[in-house]
Simulated assay, not measured.
Amino acid sequence: MNARRRSANRKGFPDNLYCKVDGYFWYRNPQSNKTKGLGRDRAEAFREARLANAALLEMGRSSLVDWVTGKPQVSFGEWLKQYEPLWIKRESPAQSTIRIGQIYLADFSRCDFAWMPVDKITAQQISTYLESLEGVRGAATMINMRSRLSDVFRTAETKGLIEAGKNPVSVTYSPEYNPTRDRMTLENFLLIREKAVPWLKNAMDLALVTGQRRDDIANMLFSDARDGFLYVAQRKGGGRTKLKIDTNVHLTAFAMSIDDVIKQCRDNILSKYMVHHVRHRGINKPGDPTSPQGISDAFRAARGFANVLPGEGKTPVTFHEIRSLAERLYKEQYGADFAQAIMGHKEAKTTAIYDDLRGTAYQEVSVK
C-alpha cells in the first residue's frame, strides 16, 4: 500500500502533525486517533511532534531480547479480551459482579493507552486515567475500578506479559472514600423492627445475629441449620466463602442467640425458607421465599413508619447496614477476630475463632 501523499503545505512537517488555516497546530495519535492541540508556535509544535513520534516508534518496536525469548507483544486492548474469561473462570463471580466487571473492562478498552503493549504502560498513564475517573464518577467507583485494573495487570504478570513486580497500578494513589449513608444504631434497629411485618422481623433478626448479607438471608433454609451449626455459603463471590456458625452464639445486646432466631422463624406456614411469605401477595403464596428486593422494600416502608430519619448530609439507613451493626456489636462482645470471622472477612485470623479447612469445606465460627 502506498503512503498517502503529503500535501505541499505540509512539506517538512513531522508525521502526524497538522496545522489549521489560522496557524494552530495539532497532533493526531495514529494508534488511538485522538488529537491534541499544540498552539501556534511552529518550532515548539515541531519539537513536540518529533518527540511524540519517537515515543511511538519506541513503544511499537519489539526488542531483540523479546524476539529471541518469544515474549508476546500484546496490546492492552487485546489483553482485556483475554483477561475477562480468565477472571470469570478463576473467581466464578456472581452475575451482578460479572456485569459490573464487564462495564469496567469496556471503559478500560476506551482509554488513551488501550492500543499500547501491556508492558509499555506506565504508572503515570494509569494515575492520569484514574484521576480522571475520580473527577467524573466519584471516589467510590474510582476505588472499585482501580482494584479491577490492578487485577488486570496482576493477571498479565502471571502470563509473562509484564515483568513480575512491575504492576503499574500498585504505586498509584487510592482515594479515601467517606460514605454518606447513615450508620445503623441498635436503637434505630429496634424502632424499625417494631414497625416491621413478622417476616421482616425475622429477616432483620437473622441479619443481626448472623451478620450475613441480605441475599444470604433471603435464601437461608431451615435445612441449613443442623447439628448445632448454621451453614452459609455466601452468595457474594460465588459461594467460595463457606461458614459453619455455632447456633449457640448469643448476641448479648439483642438478648437472642442464632438458635433463638431460627426457632422464631418457624410458624404455622409450611416452608423450607426461614424468611417466607405468610399470606398471598401478588403471584406469591404462603411459604414462598421473600426476594432480596422485597426485603429492602419492606425495610424501607418500616423505616418510614418508624420515622427514622438520616442525619444531616446522610442518606437513610438500609437493610445492609444491619450487617455493619452486627459486626460492631460482636466486636464489642467477643473481639475483632470473632467479628471478622462471622462476617466471612478474609482478614480474620485463624486462631481459636475458627478452623480454616483450606476452602474445601466450611470454616467453623464459634466462641471457644
Rank of each mutant, 00 (worst) to 15 (best):
N2R: 13
A8S: 14
K11E: 15
F13Y: 06
P14Q: 01
N16Q: 02
L17S: 00
C19P: 12
K20F: 05
K20T: 09
V21N: 12
F25E: 08
S32F: 01
G37H: 00
L38I: 05
F46H: 12
R47M: 02
R47V: 00
A54H: 12
A55M: 14
L56K: 01
L56Q: 01
E58Y: 02
G60S: 13
R61H: 13
V65F: 07
K71E: 02
Q73R: 15
Q73W: 13
Q73H: 14
S75R: 02
E84R: 11
L86M: 12
R90E: 14
P93C: 02
P93W: 00
A94P: 08
S96Q: 06
S96P: 06
S96W: 06
I98N: 01
I98W: 07
I100F: 14
D107A: 14
D107N: 15
R110L: 15
C111L: 02
D112Q: 10
A114Q: 01
V118D: 08
K120D: 03
A123T: 08
Q124M: 10
I126A: 04
S127K: 05
S127G: 08
E131M: 15
S132D: 05
G138C: 03
M142P: 01
F153I: 02
R154G: 14
T158L: 15
N167T: 04
N167Q: 04
S170L: 15
P175I: 03
N178T: 13
T180W: 06
D182H: 13
F189M: 04
I192P: 06
R193H: 10
E194F: 10
A196D: 03
A207V: 08
V209R: 02
T210W: 10
G211N: 07
Q212C: 07
Q212E: 04
R213S: 03
R213V: 02
I217F: 00
A218P: 08
S223I: 06
R226T: 08
F229N: 09
Q234I: 00
G237W: 04
G238A: 06
N248Q: 07
T252H: 12
F254W: 09
I258Y: 03
Q264I: 12
C265M: 06
R266F: 10
N268F: 13
L270N: 14
M274Q: 09
V275S: 02
H276L: 04
H280C: 10
I283R: 12
P286L: 05
G287P: 07
A298D: 08
A298E: 05
R300N: 12
R303A: 00
G313T: 05
V317C: 04
F319Y: 09
A336M: 13
Q340P: 07
G344R: 01
T350L: 13
A352V: 13
I353R: 13
Y354S: 01
Y362K: 11
V367W: 15
